[in-house]
Simulated assay, not measured.
Amino acid sequence: MANRALEFGVVMISSGCTPEQWKVKCRRAEDLGYDVIGVPDHLNLMSPFPSAVLAGAATTRARIATYVVNSNLYNRALLARDIATTDLLLDGRLELGLGTGYVEREFEAAGIPFGTPADRVAGLESAVTGLEELLGAEDSPLPVQRPRPPLVVGGHGKRVLRLAAHEAEVVSFTGAPFRPEFGRTGLVDAPALRERVGFVRRECAGRTAPPVFNVLSKQTVLTTDRRAAAAELGRYAPDLGVDQLLEVPTLFIGTARQIAEQLHRHSEDFGITYFTVMEPALEDFAKVIEQVR
């Protein structure tokens, strides 16, 4: 996987904008060299599937991703219809990210039990394993990409990563499990993430086409003082020191050239070849893309 060309995605975020404003943002992302334009799924943001369709209408080359749909909030048959319709309207450019959901108040607002982490993982497993059958149902729209669009599944727990290793075309490593001592998620260090990468490699060893490895950056900071910037990002991992923060693949810190070198190291060391940032880093990370290409 280290020999694979690096790819770059950006997750666009909006709680509301005009069609033209959305299209301008998506065109900008494509013009800057991003390979994938992602749309998230949270109740305080615009709905992912209409947003994905309009992103596709504004662009010509980029894949359009749901990054990621909370599968536990959706009726399975209706979700399959939305997926098929979106892939049709994108002419086969949809990249389908599915997740468990993790924001309890969103489940409450939707009138759906939040359940335990195991409950939510079981719901994701059900959605993933039943998707091909639902997408091929009679009298239903069929996606362009058969039997389904390429699937992105990610997380840090072994049960979710096992599912991703067996079923997904892209495994996304969050490197950020829920930490009870912090009351929220926290980044793990590089050795802990490397252990999870090894776990996925073992789990997918029998596959003809191994999955692509992806990571979502929690923060991208262009700076000439890497150590000072890392120290300011300690909130993402209160138990990690500066040297550890500089090594985790989920923080991009340094000059554009230094971050580009970091990505190449992560490609060699972890097999990560697909890097995603959030929209606030759109312009800064584009400088890194220029260095890589």
Score class of each variant (00 low, 15 high):
N3A: 12
E7N: 08
M12T: 13
S15F: 13
C17A: 15
C17P: 04
T18V: 03
Q21N: 10
R28S: 07
Y34M: 07
H42A: 03
P48A: 06
V53T: 06
T60L: 13
V69G: 00
S71Q: 08
L79E: 05
D82H: 05
T85H: 10
T86H: 13
L89Y: 12
E95A: 08
Y102P: 01
F114K: 02
T116A: 05
R120P: 01
R120C: 01
A122Y: 04
L124K: 01
T129W: 08
L131I: 04
L135K: 07
E138N: 07
D139H: 11
P147F: 02
G154D: 14
H156C: 07
G157V: 14
K158Y: 09
K158Q: 14
V160D: 04
H166D: 15
V170I: 10
E181D: 14
G183R: 07
R184P: 09
E195M: 09
E195H: 07
A205M: 11
R207H: 14
L222T: 07
A229N: 03
A231G: 09
R235T: 14
A237C: 05
L240N: 02
L245S: 01
L246T: 00
L246W: 03
E247C: 03
I259G: 00
E261K: 10
Q262H: 04
R265E: 13
F275S: 09
D284Q: 13
V288K: 01
Q291W: 00
V292T: 09
